[in-house]
Every structure is written in structure tokens, then in C-alpha cells.
Amino acid sequence: MKTSECDIIVVGVGGQGVILISNIIGKAAMKAGYPARGAETHGMAQRGGSVISHIRLGCEFGPLVPAGGAEILLALEPAEALRYAHYLSEDGIALVNTNPVLPITVTTGQSSYPPLEEILAPLQRICRSVKTLNATKLAAKAGNPQAMNVVMLGVLSRYIPLPEDMLIESLSESIPAKFLEVNRRAFELGKSEIEEA
């Protein structure tokens, strides 16, 4: 029996704004009358490390999405999409920003960063669909590459059972007014980049 309406995993690198958009989604869920649960990474891992956030819409159990149970994997960085791919259900969808962030193990030459195709191939094998875009470029187009997370939120808006106006309202409440215009543009660019849900 189903225990959550929609389970979402948001992944990325510390500093990319994973927690911010996770909160925007959770607050929007509350506005829409869904019980929501979330779990975040704080502390040590935030220093440029790999970061994962769980969000469960219409759920009143624990905040952790079980492995193999996520309807959506929203990845702000491609390598991180693969690192957490085991959370995806067979019917799930991966939404992936293709712009890599090199980990310290790569910049110092201890490891190499795999080509994008090699990262995406296993993802495509295990879930229903993988949608990719360069959200970092789109954010720059919107006026600030830092708004990449909000571009991805725009993409996500097409796939989750939450009304867009509630996401926007929650976005407006979560960021300083002076950044709102750029972020609204970023949201729209993300939303229109992915045509069909």
C-alpha cells in the first residue's frame, strides 16, 4: 500500500542551494494542504561535499525516502545524480543539470571525472525517463548562475502534484526581494526548457 503521494530526492554539492529549494517545495506542499516531510544534510558535508535532501509529499511517516522509492530524482550536478540513482523507482524520472562541479579529488588529479554519457547511461537503464539540461547556463541567462537551483525547481514544477502559484509564492517568501526577479526568470526558463511532463 502506498505510503506517500510523491517522493522526491534532491541532490547536489554543498553550496548549490539543495536545502533552499527543498524547503520551497515543502512549504508549497503545506500551502496546498499536503502533509510534507523532509530530511536535510547539515554540518560537515556542507563544505563542498555531496549533499542529499529527501522530500515526501502527502506523507505522514519518517522523512527518509526508501531506496528504490523515489518518483523524482532532481540532480543539481550530474555525478551526484548517479551517486544517488539507487533511490529512483523503476517508474521514476531523473531531472539532471548537466553542468559538472569538479570535486577536490578531481582538481588535485587523484580521480577523473567521467564523460556525461557514461554518467547518464546507467540512469537511463534503471528508470522511466531521464531529462537533461544545462541549468547553470540557463541561470546565467536569467541573470545569475547562482539561481541554477531555481531553474531546476522550474523543471521540477512540471512533474510534481503542486500548483505552480504555490511554488512561486513559497519561492517569494524564501529569498530576499532584490533577487526575486532573477529567480522568477530562472524558474520560467527551467519550466519552459522541458516541454512535456
Binding site: G14, A79, R83, H86, P103, I104, T105, P114, E118, I126
Partner: peptide, 22 residues
């Protein structure tokens, strides 16, 4: 039991991303 999918690619090709000094 419900088994957790383990992706061999994730173990083989991904560079580790430990937290680091800023």
C-alpha cells in the same frame, strides 16, 4: 526482502566527493 539496487557504475566511475576546506 526488498533488495536495494546497487549500480556498479556508481562505484566504478564516480570520483569521491568528500567535504573539503573552502
Amino acid at each position: 526482502e526488498e533488495e536495494v539496487l546497487s549500480l556498479k557504475e556508481a562505484e566504478e566511475i564516480l570520483p569521491p566527493r568528500p567535504p573539503a576546506l573552502c
